[in-house]
């Protein structure tokens, strides 16, 4: 919609511009710093090098780090889909007493901060010897993702006509056939949306992974935190090199995600 630029319009764009410039500045420094040599002053570095990437790859077992990150992400997405799909279907198709209460209970993990339930959860996982292993990291990451999936999937399933399922049954399809040949293909857009948003969230999930991960099961964001925390131990450029690797992975996922969703969808909406 076209409109004349007035005071509020100018204020809006100036403020947004300041915000965008600072975001680009924050990310730009990370990228430039990671490829710079002796950048102590001046606007841009004078000499460029890739040695910090080599240094970082030597310090960390990078393939192991990437493998752990991707394993955790993919398993979390699939397991949470398996848990969330039946629930989303039940919520979308049936009305029953206590439905509101059930929904609130299921969404509870989203309003309690991860640090508050993460510490008791980590304690439990340590007791069952799951913590420090990949399986512990996966289990912990499920906690915020499953409610998120339910929230995203339910409206998608609500949109599928009930008649289609009934028609399939009348035409002689079994329950299993109806599920795989009718319900799953029709809810594929919802499954894709929920899946890709869950990927983005799991990759950037810090607190829970940090609390339960061991040296072999940490994801890339936790490794980045540990590096930044022990800032004196490594040159800052090498830390930024790892940050760029993380940045690239997250960016690719984000761009793929934006193909399927709108940004307002990424910020969950609770009624």
């Amino acid at each position: 919609m076209e409109r004349k630029l007035n005071i509020s319009g100018i204020l809006f764009f100036v403020a947004i511009l300041i915000y965008l410039v600072n975001i680009c500045g924050i990310l730009g420094t990370v990228v430039f710093n990671s490829i710079s040599k002796g950048w102590y002053s001046g606007i841009f570095p004078q000499h460029f090098t890739l040695e910090w990437y080599r240094y970082m790859a030597n310090e960390h077992d990078l393939p192991q780090l990437l493998l752990a990150t991707f394993t955790v992400t993919i398993v979390v997405v699939f397991v949470s889909l398996l848990i969330a799909f039946p629930t989303a279907y039940g919520l979308a198709r049936y009305d029953f007493r206590l439905k509101g209460a059930l929904l609130s209970a299921l969404l509870l993990p989203m309003i309690v901060p991860p640090m508050a339930y993460g510490i008791p959860l980590a304690t439990v996982l340590y007791r069952f010897h799951l913590a420090t292993r990949l399986s512990g990291v996966i289990v912990a990451n499920l906690v915020p993702i499953v409610p998120f999936m339910i929230l995203i999937l339910t409206p998608f399933i609500e949109q599928i006509g009930v008649n289609l399922e009934a028609a399939a049954r009348i035409l002689g399809a079994s329950k299993v056939q109806t599920f795989f040949r009718v319900l799953v293909p029709l809810s594929l857009p919802g499954i894709l949306t929920a899946g890709i948003l869950a990927v983005v969230r799991t990759i950037s999930m810090f607190e829970l992974t940090f609390l339960v991960a061991g040296p072999k099961s940490q994801t890339i964001v936790v490794a980045l935190y540990s590096d930044a925390y022990a800032a004196g131990a490594r040159p800052p450029q090498a830390i930024d090199a790892l940050a760029v690797v993380y940045f690239l992975i997250a960016m690719i996922c984000l761009i793929v995600a934006l193909k399927f969703t709108s940004p307002t969808q990424m910020v969950f909406k609770v009624k």
Binding site: Y19, L20, N22, I23, C24, G25, I26, L27, G28, T29, V30, N33, V200, S204, M205, F206, V221, L224, Y225, A228, P236, I239, D240, A243, Y246, F247, A250, M251, C253, L254, A257, L258, S262, P263, T264, M266, V267
Partner: peptide, 22 residues
């Protein structure tokens, strides 16, 4: 909206690390 969603999806750790230098 793309630039707004960036800091949310990139997470606190990367933003903090960038802010330290920037």
């Amino acid at each position: 909206t793309f630039f707004l969603i960036l800091p949310i999806t990139l997470g606190t750790v990367l933003v903090s690390e960038g802010m330290l230098t920037y």
